[in-house]
């Protein structure tokens, strides 16, 4: 069985800067222009993505009932891991 490959996709993010200093992503725009709403942020902690080679604060977000990872890098760029279908 071939291992699924992933690529790093940088996305535009709508975020809420809360008064307590916490930055909460609310939605994002995928590379094809499609907009997605983040229903909930479950968890946020430093983590590395070995799939695509990136690291930062990893937000576990719920989009359309599905859990996804959204990473914020040190320079405030946001990326996601997208599977590559061959």
């Amino acid at each position: 069985m071939a291992e699924t490959k992933y690529r790093k996709v940088y996305v535009d993010v709508f975020a809420l800067m809360r008064q307590d200093g916490m930055l909460l992503p609310k939605g994002f725009i995928w590379e094809d222009g499609a907009k997605y709403k983040i229903d909930r942020v479950r968890h946020a902690a430093p983590a590395a993505s070995t799939k695509v080679g990136g690291r930062g604060i990893r937000y576990t977000v719920v989009i359309g009932g599905q859990e996804q990872y959204l990473y914020r890098e040190e320079d405030d760029r946001w990326f996601m891991e997208a599977p590559v279908y061959q």
């Binding site: 430093p46 983590a47 590395a48 993505s49 070995t50 080679g53 690291r55």
Partner: peptide
Amino acid sequence: KIAQEIRERIKFELGL
């Protein structure tokens, strides 16, 4: 214990 925790964190947070 501290060493093990650091080892885990470096792997998880930095991927190294």
